[in-house]
Design a binder for these strands. Structure first.
Lengths: 336, 336
DNA sequence: GTGAAAGCGCTAACAT
DNA sequence: ATGTTAGCGCTTTCAC
């Protein structure tokens, strides 16, 4: 006994009016008399009417739904970005479909396809670390679905972008290490194909140079997850004897390294100072607490979705593509 | 110049066949000749045809989309459940729409409405801690949208359920504390309106009783977030002098308490042993590393969505509602 | 093996 | 202030 979801037609029949009247009444169209509007609303509520978004979307040729793709939910940063996006999107009458790529290009492509099949009106994407082929993004654009990239951006794709000033941040972090007397600073870097990785490394280089500290290429390791810390264990421990500080490209990696060194008897920060990046809540759980650089995830999410909705609601405005840059703050704790 | 998304009609016109033929060819209907099928597929690929899920859903009266609501993405447990759900759902041709309630009943209700308007075929829900009114769940069921609850369940609502054996887990945790010589065990409990909270407290009580340890009601505090630890700071520190162990209802809370006590000079676990629950990755970051109880999130997600899809695909089977219980493992680390 | 036609639920231009 | 009608993209029954 399938309890049928009431449709506009059902309401129309029950009330002896036409479907269009019902539609107009529900959408508070000014032409409809107050009385009719009231009757329709009352009856609709009584039968628990719920608009069929599929039908509305099909009619309007847009779904009022935005697609979000993040690498992983567990990262506090991304979850704050999502919160920012949700708050603005809901308040403007948009829904969101959220996907995670698990840092996998294949999964990211599947996600995009699913979102496009769902006819999302626009996309908010932070590409996976393994994404080298951008054809799925261009495909979306060819279908006239705008993309706003956040945090990690893709060069050469016409789109709005919202990023942190990763260069400044890692410059500040590195500078702090130098100011506090460190000279031989190991850098655990993210892949250089993503902007975030490149920019954070660039900040590190420039800070060293500016302070007249010679860059030692030996001190730079591609290593941006706790897993890779384990994998590079030997190498890291070997280098550790030769450095007095470590700047890891994110907090998870920083803490994994911290653990590793502590297990080998190093005292942090006395023998080796350690910094992360991102100010994840785990930074305060680590012991010693982690010096890091805070990012404005929530604000970035709000900005990204605002730019997207603005573009969607002014399709003919030919708005120029913009890149908004957010400044974070150095957070000095115990580890450096 | 809106680059039009190709539709079945467009393909039909271009190829000089009828839309029904195109539809059948794309769906590999056996009636269609191999030649036609090939021509249709080739042309569809060349124009990057993408089925319009909205239209398909409208026609079929189902969206092949499942709705997921979790309290918060950042919790490792929930994100593993989501991964489990996604893997099975994708492999069976379903998409997912994921929402977070932020532990807020209001937001949870909005989420459910949005998902129902999207005509999801079924729901996978872990209710928020603040949810006391269940009308949004019954509403979904009245619309014939089945719900599978996971981790946190709601009594009295006809639905499948997938849970951890929280009773056994907290019994094991408490028992471990007793076995290692602790007698005065503080318990930081979750709200008793959610099953998880009740069950974990029940395990604590029963373990104490079974070992002949008298329960001291004074040692039980409603406190299940780091925030609440801060709020109950005085009270906790006051009690701390009187106990030799603390069992917190989750790892975040456990670690917050650990920090608090350490700052006040307590040595963990020598003076006070601490355990959490859930085996979040932060348990290994804490210092000392946290003794806790591991939950099988990924497996629970797979099971939950399997039950849901099974029900969806056998609408007339009148399958009895089931509750699947997953057993976790005690993870003994340094803190207890 | 293929086509014509109807309809899923909704909206909006065009009546009246 | 309200009704009629057509159509969004797709599937499917019924023809042939």
């Amino acid at each position: 006994m399938k309890s049928h979801q009431a449709s506009i037609n059902d309401i129309a029949k029950a009330l002896g009016v036409s479907p269009s009247t019902v539609s107009r009444a529900l959408n508070n169209h000014p032409d409809i008399s107050a009385g009719t509007r009231q009757r329709v609303h009352d009856y609709a509520r009584s039968v628990k009417y719920r608009p069929n978004i599929l039908a509305v979307g099909l009619k309007h040729q847009r779904s009022f739904t935005l697609g979000i793709i993040v690498p992983e939910f567990v990262h506090h940063f991304f979850s704050t970005v999502i919160s920012g996006i949700e708050d603005i999107a809901y308040s403007k009458g948009y829904r969101v479909m959220i996907c995670q790529s698990n840092e996998d290009q294949q999964r990211e492509m599947i996600n995009i396809q699913a979102l496009l099949e769902h006819r999302v009106d626009g996309l908010l994407v932070s590409p996976s670390k393994s994404t080298l082929d951008y054809s799925h993004f261009t495909q979306a654009l060819e279908s006239n679905i705008p993309i706003v990239f956040f945090d990690r951006i893709v060069a050469g794709i016409p789109s709005d972008k919202v990023i942190s000033n990763d260069y400044k941040g890692s410059f500040a972090i590195t500078n702090h290490l130098i100011q506090t007397g460190r000279r031989k600073i190991m850098h655990l870097a993210a892949p250089q194909n993503i902007t975030v990785g490149r920019e954070r490394s660039r900040g590190y280089f420039d800070a060293l140079e500016k302070q007249g500290v010679t860059v030692n290429e030996q001190h730079i390791l591609p290593c941006d997850t706790p897993f890779k810390v384990q994998a590079a264990k030997e190498k890291i421990l070997q280098l550790a004897g030769d450095v007095d500080a470590i700047f890891a490209v994110n907090d998870f990696t920083a803490i994994a390294v911290m653990k590793l060194l502590q297990e080998s008897g190093y005292r942090i920060p006395e023998q080796i100072a350690i910094t992360g990046y991102g100010d994840d809540p785990i930074a305060t759980i680590a012991k010693p607490t982690l010096t890091t650089f805070q990012q404005k995830g929530y604000e970035m999410g709000r900005e990204a979705v605002s730019m997207l909705i603005n573009r969607l609601e002014n399709p003919d405005a030919n708005i120029e593509y913009q890149t908004k840059v957010f400044q974070g703050n150095l957070v000095i704790r115990e580890s450096a």
